[in-house]
Design a binder for these strands. Structure first.
Length: 222
DNA sequence: CCAGACGTTGTT
DNA sequence: GTCTGG
DNA sequence: CCAGACGTTGTT
DNA sequence: GTCTGG
């Protein structure tokens, strides 16, 4: 699964990445500090497409269905296998697909509970497949929320955990983000475990366990 | 028709 | 044990 | 995901 | 809001 991740790059690196990767219309909306320990309920950096341009922005991690008016019971992951069928995600899968930017995620060994950091072998920024939504809270404000899509674990993950987040191939970004794309089969085909041989993993300090620890030692190899 | 659920993870 | 908050 | 709280009364 | 179960 995916319950914690990183985006450790500088603002400069992030801006360069956005320029080279997306057709972003509102880059100035971004102000970034390296993040070593991103946890559910925090605002995370997402990309959506409005039909013409890509837009970047911060959205709360933890999906709230449209009929719910509180932040309780936020859902942090959605299974790719059933995402097109379930009530909570069906609509968003059709119309509100997003990308969540990251450069690594944490998994805890299912037995030992020791944390590991997973990255691409080239250490580059990558994109989780996600869905977003908006709902009106009791105080009248609009709340934007998102969820990270999961799939079965690849070979690298398997001995730690049986689920992993979907990491998109850069070739699929525009298809995934295109709000006019309505071919369910095409979209679901994109949601596959990332190639194991292009990823790395290493154990890290249990300092990462506490979400308030946001410092570089979280990603230091043990 | 109305009532009640609507999600994931892992664990039992 | 279970829920809330980050 | 993990960490940390989990309650009431009255008083400040 | 929308789907499922009775």
């Amino acid at each position: 699964m995916c319950g914690r991740f990183t985006l450790t790059v500088s603002e400069q690196t992030l801006q360069t990445y956005l320029n080279n990767t997306f057709n972003v219309s509102n880059k100035t909306a971004i102000s970034h500090q390296p993040q070593y320990n991103i946890a559910p309920s925090q605002n995370i950096l997402t990309v959506i497409n409005d039909g013409k341009k890509d837009r970047v922005g911060y959205i709360s991690w933890g999906f709230i269905p449209a009929w719910q008016h509180t932040k309780k019971n936020a859902i942090i992951n959605a299974r790719s296998e059933t995402i097109d069928k379930l009530k909570s995600f069906k609509q968003a899968f059709k119309l509100k697909r997003c990308i969540i930017l990251s450069d690594g995620f944490y998994e805890w060994h299912h037995i030992t509970k020791k944390p590991f950091h997973f990255t691409l072998s080239n250490r580059k920024i990558f994109a989780f497949a996600g869905l977003w939504n908006s709902t009106i809270l009791e105080d009248g404000t609009t709340h934007y929320s998102c969820v990270i899509i999961t799939t079965e674990a690849n070979a690298l993950l398997k001995d730690k955990h049986h689920r992993m987040p979907v990491i998109l191939s850069p070739n699929d970004y525009s298809t995934w983000l295109n709000p006019n794309q309505n071919n369910t089969k095409t979209l679901k085909t994109i949601l596959k475990p990332y190639k194991s041989s292009d990823m790395s993993a290493y154990p890290v300090s249990s300092a990462v366990n506490n979400p308030s620890n946001n410092f570089i030692d979280c990603i230091k190899p043990l």
